[in-house]
């Protein structure tokens, strides 16, 4: 799978709120479409997304087929301490992928 595009600031001041944006390459097959011969194409979407910061969960989402192909997500986090931001997502086949970045809090 292609790597996702992620936008996380490198450093922030303690107490500030910053945005995380992520764009994941994924077809998000809804299960509603049919191929040329009329057979239903099975659903295959990313269904879970979790973001942790310093080991603590900050944001979690359950996706449904209504999320567009190549899911894009923005949410915000409060800067507490220097630490790792780890985002993990899982698809219907059980495959997991993650992306991480360190954020420096000054």
């Amino acid at each position: 799978m292609a790597r996702p595009l992620v936008s996380i600031p490198k450093s922030v001041r303690r107490g500030d709120i910053f945005d995380i944006r992520i764009l994941i390459a994924h077809p998000m097959e809804s299960g509603q479409r049919r191929d040329d011969s009329g057979r239903a194409i099975p659903r295959e979407i990313i269904n879970r997304f979790i973001c942790t910061y310093g080991g603590e969960e900050v944001f979690r989402a359950e996706f449904f087929p209504a999320i567009a192909a190549n899911p894009f997500l923005t949410f915000s986090v409060r800067a507490v301490e220097t630490g790792m931001i780890v985002m993990t997502w899982t698809d219907d086949l059980g495959a997991s992928q993650f992306e991480s970045a360190e954020i420096i809090v000054t």
Binding site: D19, V58, S76, V80
Partner: peptide, 14 residues
């Protein structure tokens, strides 16, 4: 979670 900043999100939907 408690460390979340502003609650809210944006995404793209069908």
């Amino acid at each position: 979670g408690p460390r979340s900043g502003r609650p809210g999100l944006s995404t793209r939907i069908r």
